[in-house]
Each structure stands twice: as C-alpha cells, then as structure tokens.
Amino acid sequence: MLDRLMAQLAPRRAVHAHCDIPCGVYDPQQARIEAESCYKIIQKYNDSSDELFRQRCTHVKEERAELTKHHIDVMWHDYFKPEHVEKFPDLHDVCWKASKQASQVKRTADIAEAQKLLDLIDRIDHMWRETGGAEATRMQQLEPVGASGAPKSDSISDSKAAAADAKPA
C-alpha cells in the first residue's frame, strides 16, 4: 500500500545535478604511468634485435601512447576550469603540446620524444598541484599500501595478506 502510494508520488523524470565524473577524481600520474611505459618500451625496442619482440614493442607502445593522450585530455577537458587558465595562461598550450607529443611518441622510437612527453606531463602535474592537487581530487589513503604496521582494511585480499605477514619468520 505504502509502496504504491510512493510510486504515485515519485517523480517521473530525473534532473541531473550533473558531473561527468561525480567522484571528481583526477591525477596526471595516470598519464605519466602510461608515458613511462612508452619510454621504457622504446628503450627495450632499441636494445633488441629480435624482430618479433620489436614488433610487439611497437604495438604495445602505440596502445600506451594512445592511453597517455586520453588521460591528458581528461585533465584538459574535465579537470581544468577557467579559473585555472587565469592562474596559468599557458595551460591550453601545455595540454595541447602534451597531446601532440603523445601522438609523436606513438609514431617514433626516439627516446628523446618520450622524455619530452614526460616533461610536458610534469608541467600539467605542476598546474594540477597548484590548483588543489591530490587533496582536492584524490581519496586520501589512510594506510598507504606497504606502510609498516598492521593493515586495518577488512577486505578479503587484505586480510589474507595480513595473515601472511603475521606468520613468524
């Protein structure tokens, strides 16, 4: 009876107090990790003479470069706001160059290009830190992974890990 009444009272439509990523989680490290993969893969590519391995390197590096570009774009399109551009007038230029540099890394095996990409991501990282950084856009880890002391998490995998740690040496 009450359910029916509630069903009648309930609105028919939703209005979105909208946010593209409701959690508001952003971190340029996501781009940086993919870009570091590109850097390391290029190193391995250049050190190897195994043609099959080099082909695989190329394939994986192209995937990683594409992901790097995606994560740069998320920072650019979703995280940065007009007030951030006021603070950093070259923000658009840096993001644009970083996106282009990711494309450049996708098509070359030149380690210098991969380093340029890392440097540009670090400039995005700097702007992110200066506009709120991890405090504003990341969850705070109460107990960093690998920190000493007994883990307090109650998840299954963590308690297994805790049990393993608790074994006498």
Binding site: A10, P11, R12, R13, A14, V15, H16, A17, H18, C19, P22
Partner: peptide, 9 residues
C-alpha cells in the same frame, strides 16, 4: 515532478 541525481548542487 523531478528527482535529483548527482551531487553538483
């Protein structure tokens, strides 16, 4: 009638 979703408000 509308139902609110999301936290932006």
């Amino acid at each position: 009638r509308v139902a609110v979703t999301g936290h932006s408000m």
